[in-house]
Computed example of a mutant assay.
Amino acid sequence: MAYVVTAPCFGCKYTDCVVVCPCDCFREGEQMLYIAPDECTDCDACRAECPVDAIYYEDDVPEAWKEFVPLNREMAEICPSIVDRKEPNARRDANS
């Protein structure tokens, strides 16, 4: 099991969660972040840091967002690792 990034991250990409991850399991996609499930140690550090409440333990992902479980696995294999804080997407900030 692992933590999963879900719908609220789409279009914002806050990276507060990335900098607290002790195993560097976050990946950066074009529109959102993903967690590499085979690298996640379930430490729970990232969940509390997410300002949009997008991160859930795999078993706790809301039913409406269950498709994000396999999406994180799939995208983590092709997206580059991210370990440093970056500015969030301007589009999401402007809509906040």
Rank of each mutant, 00 (worst) to 15 (best):
C17R: 05
N72W: 03
K86L: 13
F68P: 01
K86S: 09
D93V: 07
P22L: 00
E77I: 01
E87H: 05
R85Y: 13
C79W: 07
T15F: 01
E67N: 08
C40G: 00
A94Y: 11
V61D: 09
I55E: 12
E63V: 14
E39M: 14
D93N: 12
G29Y: 06
M32N: 01
C46I: 03
R47A: 10
M1E: 15
C40R: 00
I82Q: 05
E74V: 01
V52H: 01
D38C: 05
P22C: 04
V18N: 00
A7S: 13
F68I: 01
Y57G: 00
R92L: 10
R91Q: 15
M1W: 11
E28Q: 11
A76W: 10
P88C: 04
V4D: 07
G29W: 09
V19T: 09
K66H: 08
R47G: 03
R85I: 11
L33K: 01
A45G: 03
E58A: 02
T15K: 01
E39D: 12
S96Q: 11
A2G: 05
G11H: 02
A2L: 11
C12E: 14
L71D: 08
C23P: 00
P37A: 03
M75K: 09
E39N: 14
E39H: 13
P80K: 06
Y56H: 12
E77H: 00
D84L: 08
R73V: 06
W65M: 15
A45Q: 06
L33D: 05
A94D: 14
A48S: 10
A2E: 01
V69N: 07
D84I: 00
L71W: 07
C9H: 15
E58S: 02
C43A: 13
M75Y: 09
A36H: 15
T15P: 07
